[in-house]
Amino acid sequence: MRNLDIATLRSLQAVAEYGAVTRAAEALNMTQSALSMQMKRLEDVFDQAMLVKQGRGVVLSDFATELLLEARKLVALNDAIMARFTGRRPEGRLRVGLTSDWLFNRVAQAVRAFRQDNAGIDLIINDGRSKDLRVEMKRGDHDVILTTEFEAPPGAIHLAKLDLAWVGAVGGKVWMQRPLPIANSPQCAYTPVGLAALDKAGIEWLQTVSDGGKDTWRVLAAADLGITILPRGIAHPGLEAIDHGGALPPLPPTWLNVYVADGPARCLAADFAGYLRRAVCEVAAAA
């Protein structure tokens, strides 16, 4: 048996939040080499890779993503114990849920800006699918969530509306194949909408993603083994919007919505929503 180091788990959580070792190290006030050494310690403990290179950055491996779910619980328990027995407690706590599609650089920067302006706030970040986040908020698990949806329902704070696009490998040709290979997770909310559009247009398709990690579809699309669906304006290494000249059917727009839960953290959550609004508006303007 080996003991887990809370500091290494906290670093893993920061890398997941900021999407890069450099930014995570800055947020934790440590050097990049020190954080990298902590990731190496975790790899030695579990004999599994923690980080996977993606373009110029890194993402968590499938194993690290699973580990993160338990690591968050352990870090939170550690902080609760320290607060109880030392008397040092945060000024408040904010539980944030972000849909995975929108954990991109500008949103991470918004989270960082909020942290810097609210140093005494215990900020807990989780990601998930939009429909799951809505359910979890009703259950009381989140104070504020950012979702992507095909509607702007009552109670939502509407940040922006972006067009969806068929996306494939840079310079790819697979979009011209028939049946058309679709590299989109079956669990993604965009998948049934895209498939319905193809069916309506009479375009035969086949699903290339079934099981695997949540980034499997990005790998397949970047390898020109299928096409996927993304909102315009979001850059992913190796992927670009397909200039199909009308050969593929149009897709509906998607809404970026924020929901703020009633409760003691409502004012704080509304403040955090303002940081998200600024970040999202920058992306929407670029799109």
Rank of each mutant, 00 (worst) to 15 (best):
T8P: 08
A14C: 07
V21N: 07
T22P: 04
L28Y: 06
T31V: 05
T31C: 09
R41L: 03
F46V: 06
G55A: 10
V59L: 15
T65L: 13
K73L: 15
V75C: 06
D79V: 04
M82R: 11
M82C: 06
R93H: 14
R95T: 07
L98W: 05
L103V: 12
V111H: 12
I125F: 09
S130A: 12
K131Y: 14
K131R: 15
D132H: 02
L133N: 01
T148S: 07
A152E: 13
G155N: 04
H158V: 15
L162I: 10
L162F: 03
D163S: 10
G171I: 09
G172T: 00
M176P: 01
R178I: 05
L180A: 09
C188W: 01
A189R: 01
P192K: 02
L195C: 05
L198N: 04
A201F: 06
G202P: 10
I203W: 01
W205N: 02
V209Q: 01
G213M: 07
R218E: 10
A223E: 09
A223D: 10
G233R: 06
L239T: 00
L251M: 05
P252T: 07
L256F: 08
N257T: 04
P264G: 09
A265S: 14
L268Q: 00
A269L: 00
L276Y: 04
A279Q: 03
A286K: 08
A287S: 15
